[in-house]
């Protein structure tokens, strides 16, 4: 296959960027999208050029590091698939493919296709946990968890933290990411004591980072490689609105 790539190039955080066009030949349909970029980078390096910087690590769809907007879609055209698990067989010979970084004000571009997603970590640090000092944990079977709740918690906890939801959201909101964590921890009995405080602290951090609000458009769930459903944003809304009028914060 022969592919024409139009890729966002930006030397560093403060520099201006632009799309650059590259041709790659000899692409096998069995290559992953990132392997195709590897081929391009090998060619660029040998030709004395600057290889395209892009984030990737596990290349099996679980670490959440890869972050490419391919033809305007976060992680590309395949549903429930990260860019690293996207294969070239889903493209056609001669196709022009646009590759851009996640775009959102809280995700500044560091270089080319690499962005800083530290904002998501800070949202977790604000309250996305259950306080359980090591050694203080009670026997695991002391609190049974209804299977339904455990499954719901898992469905939410499957979020890989890639930030595709933000990249796809017309409002630049991280509500799906936020909703997934609030749903995960809020579905479990262990998560109840801090439930209100968690919701408030996390939503406050989310807004402080500069993410937009959710207007229930649903593009986030459409691109989410982990299949986090839209109702988890509603869970977030529920928990925040329920916590707002309640008295003192439990984490005080």
């Amino acid at each position: 296959m022969k592919i024409t790539l139009r890729i966002w190039r930006q030397p560093d955080r403060d520099a201006a960027g632009a799309m650059a066009t590259y041709e790659v030949d000899g692409i096998s349909p069995d290559m992953s999208f990132l392997e195709m970029l590897d081929v391009l980078n090998e060619e660029l390096a040998l030709a004395g050029g600057d290889p395209v910087a892009f984030d990737h690590d596990c290349r099996e769809g679980i670490c959440g590091m890869c972050s490419l907007v391919i033809n305007g879609l976060a992680h590309g055209p395949e549903a429930l698939t990260t860019a690293c698990q996207l294969y070239m067989r889903h493209f056609t010979d001669g196709q022009v493919i646009d590759v851009e970084p996640w775009r959102a004000t809280p995700f500044p571009v560091l270089k080319d296709l690499v962005v800083d997603r530290g904002a998501l970590d800070r949202i977790v640090a604000a309250g996305g946990y259950i306080s359980a000092p090591t050694g203080a944990a009670p026997e695991a079977h002391s609190v049974p968890v209804p299977r339904k709740d455990a499954e719901r918690a898992f469905d939410a906890a499957a979020c890989i933290g890639c930030g595709a939801c933000v990249a796809a959201c017309p409002n630049g909101s991280a509500s799906l990411f936020l909703g997934a964590k609030i749903t995960h921890l809020g579905a479990l009995p262990q998560g109840q004591p801090e439930r209100d405080a968690r919701a408030l602290a996390m939503v406050e951090q989310h807004d402080a980072e500069g993410f937009g609000g959710c207007s229930q458009i649903g593009e986030c769930t459409a691109v989410c490689p982990a299949g986090i459903p839209l109702d988890m944003i509603s869970q977030l809304n529920h928990d925040v609105l329920a916590a707002l009028p309640r008295g003192k914060d439990q984490r005080g």
């Binding site: 946990y129 259950i130 359980a132 090591t134 050694g135 203080a136 944990a137 009670p138 695991a140 609190v143 049974p144 968890v145 209804p146 299977r147 455990a150 499954e151 918690a153 898992f154 906890a157 995960h184 921890l185 479990l188 262990q190 998560g191």
Partner: peptide, 15 residues
């Protein structure tokens, strides 16, 4: 420790 942190291990119907 993991259960206390909210790790959603697989569970039986009895919880």
């Amino acid at each position: 420790q993991a259960v206390a942190q909210g790790v959603p291990f697989a569970r039986e119907y009895g919880g």
